[in-house]
Computed example of a mutant assay.
Amino acid sequence: MASVCACGDYFNVSPEGELCLNPGTMGLRETLYFRTPGTAQFRKGDYPWLARIRVRVQAAGGGSGGADSSANGSIPRPGAGGGGYSESLFEVGEIGAVESIVVGEGGAGGAGNNPGDDGGGSSFAGVVTTFGGPGGSANTASGDTNVTANAILGAATGTGQLAIGGGAGEGALRISASQGLSGRGGDSHLGFGGYGRSTTGPGGAPRGYGGGAGGAFSYDGPAESGGKGGNGLVIVELYG
């Protein structure tokens, strides 16, 4: 009569005689994506097989400042800062039955000659946290002479087993009344900053999640609004 041996590290035999996998040995079984800005909840009871989770938290990027130049003048704006990123791995017993999730919203672009708003921070359970990217400044006046505008710092480092700050938004340069370059937005761990521009137009949109908006450029009068920063994202990987 044939017999079969099973490794006890991975299998067990139930009282009913069924061969079963040991909890915690099945690897990644499901991934949850929280993309909508605002609050949500994670309930571990919805996953009775859960052994551990890996949480990846991306903050939102900042919005860039608006630009409204006078006649025969120009204003290029710097790019906004990228949002920070944090991640942690938890055993199922280390998390509560219900944990809160916050997804940050990208900072709004400035109108007229006003700065952009900071991006919102994202978090999981209040222990894996991130800071949103700073908004782009709007402190350069219209003119026709060479001038520079400082770059914008990226988001500060949050909390987690791995925590990374956001990328800096690039500075801006005016060469003359009609020539210049606005700043590119700061990158994030899960996204890219909006493009810088050398022609009149609004701030460039970021791609992915958490990138800062590119700077606006106004030449000879038309007001150009700043760009909106990229929204944040929370990813919860479920291991059985």
Results as ranks from 00 to 15, higher is better:
Phe124Gln: 03
Glu94Ala: 08
Ala51Val: 14
Ile101Trp: 03
Arg77Trp: 03
Thr159Lys: 12
Gly65Pro: 03
Gly160Cys: 05
Gly110Asn: 08
Ala40Asn: 06
Pro78Ala: 09
Ala108His: 07
Glu105Asn: 15
Glu105Ile: 06
Ser69Gly: 12
Ser64Cys: 01
Gly167Tyr: 02
Ser64Leu: 00
Ala111Tyr: 15
Gly121Leu: 00
Leu162Glu: 15
Ser74Gln: 05
Glu91Thr: 12
Thr148Ala: 13
Asn146Met: 06
Gly106Pro: 02
Lys44Cys: 09
Val147Ile: 12
Gly132Ala: 15
Gly112Ala: 08
Phe124Glu: 02
Gly133Trp: 09
Gly165Tyr: 01
Ser64Tyr: 00
Leu32Asn: 10
Asn139Asp: 10
Ser86Pro: 04
Gly96Cys: 09
Thr39Asp: 14
Ala155Glu: 00
Ala111Cys: 14
Pro48Met: 05
Leu89Lys: 14
Trp49Met: 09
Ser123Gln: 08
Ala111Pro: 11
Ser74Ala: 08
Ala141Arg: 08
Ala71Trp: 07
Ser64Val: 00
Ile101Arg: 03
Asp117Gly: 15
Val57Ser: 00
Tyr85Leu: 15
Phe131Tyr: 04
Val127Leu: 07
Ala40Gln: 05
Ala108Gln: 12
Thr148Cys: 13
Ala151Gly: 13
Leu162Pro: 06
Ala149Asn: 14
Gly121Phe: 00
Gln58His: 04
Thr130Tyr: 03
Leu89Phe: 09
Ser122Glu: 01
Ala59Val: 07
Gly135Thr: 02
Asp46Ser: 08
Gly110Glu: 04
Arg77Phe: 04
Ala80Gly: 03
Ser70Thr: 11
Gly126Ile: 11
Ser64Thr: 00
Gly154His: 01
Gly65Asp: 03
Ala155Tyr: 00
Thr130Val: 08
Ala59Asn: 11
Ala97Ile: 08
Val128Ser: 02
Ala156Gly: 10
Asn114Gln: 15
Val102Cys: 06
Glu30Lys: 14
Thr130Ile: 04
Tyr33His: 12
Arg52Lys: 11
Gly62Phe: 01
Ala59Pro: 06
Arg35Gly: 15
Gly84Ser: 07
Tyr85Gly: 09
Tyr47Ile: 06
Gly61Lys: 00
Gly154Glu: 00
Gly107Ser: 04
Gly154Ser: 04
Gly38Ile: 03
Gly165Gln: 02
Asp68Ile: 15
Ala67Ile: 01
Asn146Phe: 06
Asn139Glu: 06
Val98Ile: 09
Ala151Asn: 08
Leu28Pro: 14
Ala51Lys: 13
Asn114Ala: 14
Ile53Val: 05
Gly27Val: 10
Tyr33Ile: 11
Val102Asp: 03
Gly93Lys: 10
Thr140Gln: 10
Ser100Ala: 15
Val128Met: 05
Ala125Lys: 03
Leu32His: 09
Asn146Trp: 11
Gly165Ile: 03
Gly107Pro: 02
Glu87Asp: 11
Val102Ser: 07
Ser137Phe: 12
Gly112Tyr: 04
Gly45Cys: 10
Gly63Tyr: 01
Thr130Arg: 02
Gly62Asp: 00
Ser100Thr: 13
Asn114Thr: 13
